[in-house]
């Protein structure tokens, strides 16, 4: 998978490395901003009330 991405990125090794870093940061951003906040309530750390909310 990663090899496939690397082969399909344009430019020389430096440009590819730069694009890779940007891609990684974008993925981390999407995870922290959207995926993790969605996944968190599915875990038991958030149940602090007594009425099951």
């Amino acid at each position: 998978m990663y090899g496939w991405i690397w082969r399909h990125l344009p430019g020389n090794a430096w440009v590819r490395a730069l694009i890779s870093i940007v891609l990684v940061l974008a993925v981390v951003y999407v995870l922290f901003q959207y995926v993790f906040p969605w996944a968190e309530p599915l875990l038991p750390f958030n149940d602090v009330t007594v009425d099951g909310q």
């Binding site: 998978m1 990663y2 981390v28 993790f36 996944a39 968190e40």
Partner: peptide
């Protein structure tokens, strides 16, 4: 084998990131 390894590494990184999110970022 290579795909499986990449999948495992990805899953591991995902778990580490999620822990960092819970413990630090929240």
């Amino acid at each position: 084998v290579r795909s499986l390894s990449e999948l495992c590494i990805t899953a591991g990184a995902l778990v580490v990131l999620f822990v960092a999110y819970l413990l630090y970022w929240t």
